[in-house]
Structure formats: structure tokens, C-alpha cells
């Protein structure tokens, strides 16, 4: 009970701090990440329930989710102002361009593999 009592204010503080200190663009990316993760989990559950056939379609769908997640997470890391000392050579524009090109390639491959 005491652990829960300690946890509640901690979560509250985390939420407050997130609300106040995270930029809108990063919050956008977070929403996008949550959406991708939900889609990936749904597919995995469906695969467990309905079986692996057709396996190539499952792989294409799942890999598209995982790939999108990885690319979006990278975008988030590279455009976070707090990380800017680590990515001196990579401007936010450059980071977004990388993200866009890689995403287009990923989706082309996934659609091709979907069968």
C-alpha cells in the first residue's frame, strides 16, 4: 500500500514534467510511436490467434510496424534538443529527410513482400 502511495505522486510528477518540458514536436512523435506499437501488438495477437498462414503477409505487416517504430524513435532521438550536443553534424532537417527516405523505402519493400 505504501509503495502505491509513493508511486502515485511519482507518476504525477512524471506526467507534469512531461507536459511542461517536452516540446510539441516530440509529443507528436510519441503519439505516432504509440499508434505504431498498438498496430504491431494487434498483428502479433492476430497471428497467434489465426495462425502463421500467410506468413509472408504477417512478416510484411509486422516488419513494417517494427521498422516504422525504429525510424520514428531515431527521429525522436536526433531532433530532441537535449541530445543536440551528441548530433552536432545532424540538423533536424537532415534527420527528418533521413526519416522520410528510409520510411518510403521500408514501405516499398513491405508492400512488395505483402503478396
Amino acid at each position: 500500500m505504501s509503495a502505491m502511495q509513493d508511486l502515485a505522486p511519482a507518476i504525477k510528477r512524471l506526467a507534469n514534467s512531461y507536459q511542461q518540458t517536452t516540446s510539441i514536436s516530440l509529443k507528436f512523435i510519441d503519439i505516432y510511436l504509440v499508434f505504431i506499437m498498438g498496430s504491431g501488438i494487434l498483428q502479433f495477437v492476430y497471428m497467434l490467434a489465426a495462425g502463421t498462414f500467410p506468413y509472408n503477409a504477417f512478416l510484411a505487416g509486422f516488419i513494417s510496424s517494427v521498422g516504422s517504430f525504429v525510424l520514428a524513435a531515431n527521429l525522436r532521438i536526433q531532433t530532441n534538443a537535449q541530445n543536440s550536443p551528441d548530433f552536432k553534424g545532424i540538423s533536424p532537417e537532415r534527420a527528418f529527410a533521413d526519416f522520410a527516405v528510409c520510411s518510403i523505402l521500408l514501405h516499398l519493400f513491405c508492400v512488395n513482400f505483402l503478396g
Binding site: 498483428q43 495462425g51 500467410p54 505487416g61 514501405h107
Partner: peptide, 20 residues
């Protein structure tokens, strides 16, 4: 049986476009 995967890939593409 593969329609959910098609929807998923489609939603990823739409999601990417909307997000961008």
C-alpha cells in the same frame, strides 16, 4: 486471412504521411 496485415501496412503508410 491476410487482410489485417494489408490494413496494417496501409495504416503504416497513411500514418507516415499524416505524421510527416
Amino acid at each position: 486471412a491476410a487482410y489485417p496485415y494489408y490494413v496494417s501496412v496501409g495504416s503504416m503508410i497513411v500514418g507516415f504521411l499524416v505524421f510527416s
